[in-house]
């Protein structure tokens, strides 16, 4: 039979290991420390076509993750997709920065690339990006290519 002290010790060890595991998951696996959701500011961007962009896709600038997509909705007046980007408060971008929807690798996930502009005023929370470039949709690309080929053929005749 174990004494109460021994029980307390073992349960204490159990708690320490458990908290350790949770910290490991939060900090090392989810990287909570370097990117806390508390100090972010939202920026809106409108796209004609977002392709396969998903909520929580990364927002990168010069290849560095600076934020995440927090919301995607459809604007029924302009018939555009409105994407909300939560950008880490540590990073500031000029007001005339532009956003592109890019693909990592040939078939990888889609993300948003932020290209800084040259304005002296920085973006504030709630601002909307003026310059955007929609996702490249492979079907459209192939369609256009075939159309051009066909047009060339017509011209030669």
């Amino acid at each position: 039979m174990m004494t109460r002290k021994e029980l307390d010790l073992w349960v204490g060890i159990f708690a320490v290991i458990g908290i350790g595991a949770m910290l490991f998951l939060s900090l090392k696996v989810a990287n909570l420390a370097s990117f806390s959701s508390a100090d972010t500011y939202p920026i809106l961007a409108k796209f004609d076509n977002i392709g396969a962009l998903k909520v929580r896709a990364p927002v990168k600038s010069a290849g560095v993750v600076v934020g995440r997509v927090s919301e995607i909705r459809f604007d029924n007046e302009s018939f555009e997709a409105v994407v909300t980007l939560n950008v880490d408060g540590r990073y500031k971008f000029p007001k005339d920065s532009s956003a592109k929807i890019l693909t990592s690798g040939l078939l990888g996930e889609q993300y948003i690339g932020l290209t800084p502009g040259g304005d002296s005023v920085n973006l504030k929370g709630g601002d909307t990006l003026k310059l955007t470039q929609s996702a490249v949709v492979l079907e459209n690309l192939i369609g256009q290519f075939l159309y051009n080929k066909a047009a060339e053929g017509e011209g030669k005749k």
């Binding site: 159990f14 708690a15 290991i17 458990g18 350790g20 595991a21 949770m22 490991f24 998951l25 090392k28 696996v29």
Partner: peptide, 15 residues
């Protein structure tokens, strides 16, 4: 109380 701790441990050990 034990179950979430054990699940976290399982995940951490799995990673």
């Amino acid at each position: 109380i034990s179950m979430p701790v054990l699940a976290a441990l399982f995940s951490a050990m799995g990673v």
